[in-house]
Amino acid sequence: MRRVVCPGSFDPVTNGHLDVVGRAARLFDEVVVAVGVNKSKQRLFSPEERLDMLRRACSDWANVRVEGFTGLLTDFCRAHDVHAIVKGLRAVSDFDYELQMAQMNASLTDVETVFMPTSPEWSFLASSLVKEVATFGGDVSGLVPDFVHDLLVARLGGHRDGES
Rank of each mutant, 00 (worst) to 15 (best):
M1S: 12
M1E: 09
V4Y: 01
V5L: 10
C6F: 14
P7E: 01
G8K: 10
G8I: 04
G8V: 03
S9N: 12
D11T: 05
D11M: 07
D11C: 08
P12A: 02
P12T: 00
G16R: 12
D19A: 05
D19V: 04
V20H: 10
V21A: 13
A24S: 14
F28H: 00
V31H: 00
V32D: 02
A34P: 01
A34N: 05
V35W: 07
V35C: 12
G36Y: 07
V37N: 08
V37A: 07
N38C: 04
K39E: 14
K39D: 13
S40Q: 14
Q42G: 12
R43P: 02
R43Q: 09
F45T: 03
S46Y: 05
S46H: 05
M53W: 10
M53V: 08
L54V: 11
R56W: 11
C58S: 02
N63A: 12
V64Y: 08
R65F: 07
R65E: 08
T70F: 12
T74A: 09
D75W: 00
A79N: 12
A79V: 01
D81T: 02
V82M: 01
A84Q: 03
I85S: 07
K87D: 06
G88H: 03
G88I: 02
L89T: 09
S93F: 13
D94R: 09
F95G: 10
D96E: 15
Y97L: 06
E98Q: 15
A102C: 10
Q103G: 09
A106F: 05
A106V: 02
S107A: 15
L108Q: 06
L108V: 02
V111Y: 03
E112I: 01
V114N: 03
F115L: 10
P117Y: 11
P117D: 10
P120I: 07
E121W: 12
W122L: 00
W122S: 00
S123D: 14
F124R: 04
L125A: 07
A126Q: 11
S128P: 09
L129A: 15
L129W: 13
L129H: 12
E132Y: 03
V133Y: 13
V133F: 14
A134C: 12
G137V: 14
V140M: 06
S141F: 05
L143H: 10
L143M: 15
V144S: 08
P145Y: 01
V148Q: 00
V148K: 00
V148H: 01
V148S: 01
H149M: 04
H149T: 03
H149L: 03
D150K: 14
D150H: 08
L151A: 15
L152E: 08
R155A: 14
L156W: 02
L156G: 02
H159Y: 14
H159C: 11
R160D: 13
